[in-house]
Design a protein around this nucleic acid. Structure first.
Length: 340
DNA sequence: CCTGCAATAT
DNA sequence: AATATTGCAG
């Protein structure tokens, strides 16, 4: 109990905290999220033409405007949530948020159907780095379900009969934290800094339709536990005094210290301190690390500063159907939080 | 009211 | 097993 205090930095009280009210965080939020970079060209075929032809796969015209548009027709639904919550907290920064919000349906949550089994989830997210020079990268990746028909429709599916996208009263089934969703979560958290990384704010910044504060809170709780473990281990071997100094380069408390730790790359934010080979036998944190079938743990960078494009070296195309355009670019000023 | 966290439920 | 809920303390 007492130990948990380090995480709570008294922000509760009342909403007022002054921190949120300020413009600082808000300003940073603007570029906070991944967007253009991730923008995986939906209109782009997932498989190279040559490869496709090699397998006699007919490349469909690709999902262009049509499909994309289809996937994004549920517009302002996201606004309702953001709007209401925002106002309740005095978030009048709509202008800034607008960037995200405006993009509305940036990402739909996926819901698990309890009785019905789970069909395939989203597609893959292969490591499409642009190593260019490397060239030794054969495309012999795993050619998974290549033609996953439409995927992202929109609006979370409820278990079966409960459909009331309007508002509450609808029992959202369990939310499935897909790697994409988690990534978004991590990105937001990482760039919010421990100070503002609270459920409500995270939820708002993630701007995922259907995401509730509870969803985030629950996930956040788990995420924190995970981080704690990591930190605990890494600092364990070192002199305990380091902890006292809180100057440990690691993600000391969450990821506010060196903004660099944030975002892994879809995986967990690995503290820069931990050697890649030093991974514990098995870290429980499935969803992100490998979750369902995404067992590839590619590099876990760990440093990268920021939100720039760096983090996506390994994988792009994330929240599939969303066209971020306005948000544009979190410049790199993203020195993000910390300080203060 | 909101957060964080453990325990507990599904 | 992964999430959701609940209860409690701040």
């Amino acid at each position: 109990m007492s130990e948990s205090d380090d995480l709570r930095h008294g922000r509760g009280g009342g909403s007022g905290d002054g921190e949120l009210d300020g413009e600082d965080p808000v300003a940073e939020w603007e570029f906070g999220l991944p967007s253009c970079d991730d923008l995986a060209p939906l209109s782009q075929a997932l498989i190279p033409p040559d490869l496709a032809s090699a397998f006699s796969i007919a490349l469909r015209p690709s999902r262009t405007a049509g499909d994309v548009n289809r996937a994004s027709r549920s517009t302002l639904t996201g606004l309702r949530r953001c709007g209401s919550t925002a106002s309740s907290q005095g978030f009048s920064t709509n202008d800034n948020f607008k960037s995200f919000v405006d993009d509305r349906q940036s990402m739909e949550v996926e819901v698990e159907v309890e009785e019905g089994e789970k069909e395939e989830e989203e597609e893959e997210e292969e490591e499409e780095e642009e190593e260019g020079d490397g060239a030794d990268k054969s495309d012999s990746r795993k050619s998974r379900r290549i033609e996953t028909a439409e995927e992202v429709d929109s609006t979370p599916r409820m278990d079966d009969s409960q459909e009331d996208p309007s508002e509450k009263t609808s029992k959202r089934s369990r939310l499935v934290w897909t790697p994409q969703l988690h990534k978004r979560f991590v990105d937001v958290v990482a760039h919010l800094g421990i100070k503002n990384a609270v459920p409500k704010t995270i939820m708002q910044l993630m701007n995922v339709e259907g995401l509730t504060r509870e969803n985030v809170a629950s996930h956040l709780q788990k995420y924190r536990l995970y981080l704690r473990r990591m930190q605990g281990m890494s600092s364990e071997g070192l002199s305990s005094s380091d902890q006292l100094f809180t100057s440990t380069p690691v993600v000391h408390s969450l990821n506010d210290v060196a903004g660099s730790t944030g975002h892994g790359d879809g995986q967990m934010p690995m503290p820069t301190l931990m050697p890649y080979g030093a991974q514990p036998p098995m870290m429980p944190m499935p969803v992100y690390a490998m979750g369902h079938g995404y067992g590839h743990m590619r590099m876990q960078i760990g440093d990268l500063s920021g939100f720039e494009s760096n983090q996506y070296v390994t994988q792009h195309r994330d929240w599939s159907s969303n066209k971020y355009g306005s948000v544009a670019s979190y410049q790199q000023t993203a020195s993000n939080e910390k300080r203060f």
